[in-house]
């Protein structure tokens, strides 16, 4: 075993280690550094200990934003996963339709975040937006600038539009890898459409679904650009998610210490929740 440590292969990994150090470890250490100090500008720093952390964990503002994040992630998972599976199940398996569908599905994924935000901001405007204007014309009172519920619906819709494709593509990949013999056997056994889904397709999609849920969870928990562009966190604080609050604090108010503490806590929460998700879902897989 010793010899494999002497292997020159380790030199190959070195550039990556250096890169990771500069891109992740060094900034993270800076954040840790800020989070335990206080500053009044002029580059003067005072030791603050765990003060920022205590303050943060005691603040309603933090917990409210956290609550919004969780609700948002759960809502978009509850919509995007079943919708993604449904679309994937109904996509064609062969012929020209496959490539057409795949391109269509991939399109939203190619649009940058802020552009998606801008599109929807315009789309939903009551005065000039197609959606907003149409809704108003048929008598539905819709205004994402003034109504918190409407603002939420807009942000959720936007995310669903943007990201359901990812779930679709992953599920589709899982579905096409199922050998034909399974479908044939099910037909011979007289299985209904639902039984085929429940006992063949769903179990075989297990792994890709795990990846889809994890990716969507982590990504949605870090949501920033879309609400920032569309609602700017409002009306009131109704769409102020952790990330938006964080930026307000750091860039708007220059509270570097509290912001650093918050981003650390935020980071740990994502890590922890992802780990919980992963463990729960893989354990279920093992049981099966």
């Amino acid at each position: 075993m010793e010899k494999s440590w002497n292997n020159r292969a380790w030199f190959m990994v070195l550039p990556v280690l250096v890169l990771v150090a500069f891109s992740a470890v060094v900034p993270l250490m800076t954040v840790v550094n800020y989070s335990v100090q206080d500053t009044f500008g002029n580059n003067e720093f005072f030791w603050a200990g765990t003060e920022w952390f205590e303050e943060l964990l005691a603040s309603d503002r933090f917990w409210e934003a956290m609550g919004r994040n969780l609700v948002f992630s759960l809502v978009i998972l509850a919509i995007e996963v079943p919708l993604g599976i449904f679309i994937a199940l109904n996509m064609p398996r062969k012929g020209i339709g496959v490539s057409v569908c795949l391109v269509l599905m991939a399109l939203p994924l190619l649009v940058p975040w802020n552009v998606v935000g801008t599109i929807w901001q315009v789309f939903g405007r009551v005065d000039i937006g197609l959606l907003g204007h149409t809704l108003e014309a048929i008598g539905i009172d819709y205004n994402y600038v003034s109504d918190p519920i409407d603002a939420w619906i807009t942000v959720v819709l936007m995310d669903v539009w943007h990201w359901t494709s990812l779930v679709v593509l992953l599920c589709y990949a899982g579905l096409v890898s199922i050998p034909d013999a399974y479908y044939q056997a099910a037909r011979i056994d007289g299985a209904s459409r639902w039984a085929v889904f429940r006992y063949i397709q769903l179990p075989k999609m297990n792994r890709v679904l795990l990846i889809a849920v994890l990716l969507r969870f982590m990504d949605s928990f870090m949501i920033y650009t879309e609400p920032f562009v569309v609602t700017g966190g409002g009306p009131g604080n109704s769409t102020t998610f952790l990330s938006i609050d964080l930026v307000k604090m750091a860039v708007g108010q220059f509270d570097l210490g509290p912001a650093a503490a918050m981003s650390l806590v935020y980071f740990l929460i994502i890590l922890l929740l992802s780990w919980v998700f992963y463990t729960v879902m893989t354990n279920r897989g093992v049981e099966r």
Binding site: A181, Y182, Q184, A185, Y199, P203, R288
Partner: peptide
């Protein structure tokens, strides 16, 4: 007639079982 209506059974080259059952 469809496969279901023919009332036959088939054993395939690679085992087909419903894993979760």
């Amino acid at each position: 007639l469809s496969t279901e209506a023919r009332n036959i059974a088939q054993v395939f080259q690679f085992p087909v079982v419903y894993d979760t059952m």
